[in-house]
Amino acid sequence: MIVLGVAMLALGVGFLLVAAIGLVRLPDPFQRMHSATKAGTLGTSLIVLGVLLLDQTARLSTGLLTILFLLLTLPIGAQLLGRAAYLSGARMEGVDDDPLADVLDRAEAKPTDRPD
């Protein structure tokens, strides 16, 4: 039980670290969003699960509610942020044809939006 809990904690922290590295290394906001929101939330859920296994006094309901809420709100937040980023004309790399361009009104990217 304890070994499993510690393994889950370590895996969760590892995923969070990977998400942060992806946040720095990936080239545009959309790809960074994939790394941060998804891997980050999976890491957090794993950590909370690990805590539930390790800490006998922790209430199961609180931990499970946290995970449930993270999983429920993650896609909604990601969709809102992605759509908003698209509409605001954030830099998008490597996408050749963009079928969304006919559907949504995309703002012009600022010339100062330099690659970084």
Partner: peptide, 22 residues
């Protein structure tokens, strides 16, 4: 460099805060 990057990073910061409190 853009707002979208900052907001994504903010999302990530909150996830780290949740992990810290756990």
């Amino acid at each position: 460099p853009s707002f979208a990057d900052r907001f994504v990073a903010f999302d990530m910061l909150t996830a780290v805060a949740v992990a810290f409190s756990a």
